[in-house]
Each structure stands twice: as C-alpha cells, then as structure tokens.
C-alpha cells in the first residue's frame, strides 16, 4: 500500500474538502469551494491548501505530528471562530475513514489491507485528538483576547495614574 497514486490522493483530498465545504450554507458553498482567489476567499483557499497537505500526511502510516499540526492548525483556527460547536467543527476529520474506504473498496478483503486500514484509522483518531487540542487553544485564545480587552482601558489608567505598578521585567533577556 505504499503506492497511492497522486491522482488518487487528489481525489481523496478533493472529497475531504467537499465534506468540509458542505458544512456551510448552500449559497456560500460555491463561493468557498470555487473561488480560487487567495485574498477574496481566504476560508476556502486555506482549507483547500491544508487539506491537501493533511491528506498527504495521513496516508503516511508513520504520522509526523509536526507536519500534521502545521496543516491542521489553519483549518481548525478558522472553524473555531465560525459558530460551530466543537463536534460540528471537527466531525469532518472522521469522514476521511469513509472517504478512503469508498475509494478503496477491495482493501478490506486482504489481510495486508485490513492492517493498513487499522493503521489509518488510528492515524485519524490521533488527528482528531490533536484537533481537539488546537480547537481548545484557539478558544482559549479568544477568551484571553476578550479578557485582555476588557481589562485594557482600566489597567492602563491605573498604571499611569500610579495607582498600580507592575513587577519590572527583569531577566527577560536571560530567559530568551
């Protein structure tokens, strides 16, 4: 199973992409899916670009977590702010199991194929776990930004009016 043709890979990633795009309203699906302008359609293009990388990575049975994270992160970052619940935002990852089986129907008939599928499923599960982490860190970031913003005006005033002072930032250089 080490030879998955480029063509097939493209098909797999295209199908995976379609699954994500189908989570958007009908009217914007075509826009997200088809507009190839990087600047006019950042959502569609970011997802497309990274889902291609992700497809490539997931098919390597020996998962490179760094590469996966690089590809996964931009997608999750977008989905995390798009009004999705966490399950809705991440469900697309599981879909790859079905997509792959549909594309390779005979695989489950051989012992070797079954082993491959098992390994692939394990990869997917691992990617879902990574996605959970990324999703949470994005949400965490949002909450941090909200809190910072809420604190900001007042805090600046307190500092500048000498009603509050902060510990000076010593030793920063050493840590860096």
């Amino acid at each position: 199973m080490d030879t998955i043709s480029t063509e097939k890979k493209q098909r797999l990633s295209q199908n995976w992409f379609s699954v994500i795009i189908n989570t958007y309203p009908t009217e914007s699906k075509a826009f997200f899916g088809k507009n190839k302008d990087l600047f006019a359609n950042p959502v569609g293009n970011t997802i497309k670009r990274n889902i291609e990388r992700l497809t490539h990575e997931v098919l390597l049975l020996d998962l490179n977590r760094d590469h996966v994270k690089e590809a996964l992160e931009p997608i999750i970052r977008i989905r995390a702010v798009q009004e999705f619940s966490i399950s809705d935002a991440l469900a697309f990852i599981f879909a790859f199991k079905t997509i792959f089986r549909k594309e390779n129907p005979s695989l489950s008939q051989t012992e070797e194929g079954r082993l491959y599928l098992e390994a692939l499923d394990a990869n997917i599960d691992e990617i879902v776990l990574m996605a959970l982490d990324i999703y949470m860190s994005c949400k965490h970031k949002i909450y941090t930004l909200r809190i910072n913003e809420a604190k900001k005006h007042v805090r600046q005033l307190l500092i500048k009016k000498n009603l509050m002072c902060e510990v000076p930032e010593t030793g920063v250089e050493i840590i860096r």
């Binding site: 295209q14 379609s18 699954v19 189908n22 958007y24 309203p25 809705d88 879909a95 997509i99």
Partner: peptide
C-alpha cells in the same frame, strides 16, 4: 464532486446546508 461518500451519521451531524 458528485460521488463523495455520504454516510448518514456523518451527514446528520455536519450538514449545515440550509434546506
């Protein structure tokens, strides 16, 4: 694009396409 798999459970959970 037409022939991508549509297993029910996946669709039920993530298809936001407006009716």
């Amino acid at each position: 694009m037409a022939d991508f798999p549509k297993p029910k459970e996946m669709f039920d959970s993530i298809d936001y396409a407006l009716p």
